[in-house]
Every structure is written in structure tokens, then in C-alpha cells.
């Protein structure tokens, strides 16, 4: 998964988090993400840890009140 040449490498997923949407590398990784469950889970892990995701939900619950 961390082999840089693998379609599921962290480097490729980080391109999706930080890269420019018009770049070819971004579009290629985005297309792969459509159908790769491993990368779908991994992109959430690389974006933030579980506490951040849960804390975000808690903050939003109050934000709506």
C-alpha cells in the first residue's frame, strides 16, 4: 500500500488531499478512488484521525442548535 508506484500508495492518496484538481495525477487517483474500497478508507485516515472526525460531529450537533 505504501509502495509509491502502487495505485493505492499513500503518496497518491495525498495528491487527492493536497493536489490541484486539474492535474492529471489528481484525476487519475480520483478515478481509482471511485472503485477502490481500500483507498476510500485510507483517504479518511490520512485526512484526520478518528477523534477529529468524531469531534467534528459533536461540534456540528451544537452548531445546529
Amino acid at each position: 500500500m505504501n509502495n509509491a508506484t502502487s495505485p493505492c500508495s499513500d503518496d497518491r492518496i495525498k495528491t487527492l488531499l493536497q493536489g490541484e484538481e486539474c492535474d492529471e495525477a489528481f484525476r487519475s487517483a480520483a478515478k481509482h478512488l471511485d472503485s477502490c474500497t481500500t483507498c476510500q478508507l485510507r483517504i479518511a485516515e490520512l485526512a484526520a484521525d478518528e477523534c477529529d472526525w468524531m469531534g467534528c460531529q459533536a461540534g456540528a450537533a451544537v452548531g445546529r442548535s
Binding site: 487527492l16 478515478k31 484526520a48
Partner: peptide, 13 residues
Amino acid sequence: AGSIYIARSRIMT
């Protein structure tokens, strides 16, 4: 689906 995963993760970051 891929666009949704990207959007939510970029915003979370």
C-alpha cells in the same frame, strides 16, 4: 463516489 470521498476528506483536513 470518489468525488464525495475527496470532498469530505479535503474539508476535514
